[in-house]
Nucleic acid binder design. Structure first.
Lengths: 187, 187
DNA sequence: CCTAGATGGTAACAGCGTCAACATGAAAAA
DNA sequence: TTTTTCATGTTGACGCTGTTACCATCTAGG
């Protein structure tokens, strides 16, 4: 058979690496980052703990892989929101910012994991690239593009974190309000 | 003797709780949050691991106490920067914002710990109170005070996080630039 | 067909957070 | 002063964790 088998009877798993990342992502949806154990993920996938080491050098690498997948999801959420906006330009950019915050609120543990690691491969992430590219469309004239992008990113990231910590109410109207105030009243 | 003894010979420690928080804070300055173990802190203080449980119900409580101390330090850093500013009002408020970011950069692991826990007693923290109180002085007229405070907090918090993760260069000029752009050009 | 290498499992290690049971000593009660 | 009490510290143990060394199995290529 050419396709990888998924039978429980087969000795080899087929695509264990993907299964581990997937299961890890799933467990992040139910518990916090601290409750995520290498052994637990392996157990859930139905494989011995040490099998993980055939695909990841250590636990941290597995977490990084999960985080990387998270960044991919976040980037896509931003792009979807951007495209879905009726008007292009500044308004669409704000929509992508709101999507950023909403993603964090919808996936608290994952979002925390993504940014909780200095080791992370988050540099030059998908989400970051999106922000840098599209912020220019919304930057007011005469303002440094890079500075504006960083400012926008800071606001959405900070707002997401504060709402995640319960330091600000996770209110959709509030998100729009803060973003409008930051990105300029011309929205 | 009326004073608590600090001799290594004495069975009772004197003020173990404070010593544990202090040592935990110290270790946070050298390693990451993940490398901080209850046993390790107890060992460094020269006490058995289970002695910790006379002062904290579990490890999480110890971490929360450390975080709480961190919030106290952060609040003070903001107040100092605010007072040190020559002009009062908006300019001083911006200075306190810059102090917020610099505190995060100076104490990366501590800052991460402070905000990495949904369980944290970070609600109604010292730093938060300061922001809410003093943001009014800098809010442009006609803008909702609460919204402005949240926006300002989001920017400094997000900027701190991004710089901590290496997603933005930890540049002092950059901090001032982003803050100026956000808090209004009237600074 | 057979062999080599990728992918899996077993057993064991030290370290972790935590609990139950016991020891100590300082301060209140006698 | 003597006695008792109770907060504080210790020992030993349990199950769990990440990780390693070594062995088993399957599958692809000669």
């Amino acid at each position: 058979m050419k396709k990888p088998t998924n039978d429980q009877t087969s000795y080899h798993h087929g695509d264990l690496r993907a299964a581990l990342v997937c299961e890890g992502m799933r467990q992040l949806g139910e518990e916090g980052v601290g409750d995520l154990s290498l052994r637990g993920v392996a157990r859930a996938v139905g494989v011995s703990a040490t099998a993980v080491y055939r695909h990841f050098p250590d636990k941290d690498a597995l977490l990084s892989a999960i985080a990387e997948e998270g960044f991919r999801m976040l980037g896509q959420a931003q792009r979807v929101a951007f495209s879905a906006a009726r008007e292009a330009g500044a308004r669409a950019f704000q929509a992508s910012g709101a999507a950023y915050v909403r993603f964090a609120l919808a996936n608290p543990a994952l979002f925390r994991l993504m940014f909780a690691r200095p080791t992370a491969a988050s540099r030059q992430s998908d989400a970051a690239a999106f922000l840098r590219e599209n912020s220019a469309a919304s930057a007011p004239p005469g303002v440094d593009r890079g500075l504006f992008a960083l400012q926008a990113w800071s606001v959405v990231h900070g707002l997401a974190m504060l709402m995640l910590d319960g330091l600000a109410p996770a209110d959709d109207t509030l998100i729009e309000g803060v973003l409008s105030a930051t990105l300029g009243p011309n929205c």
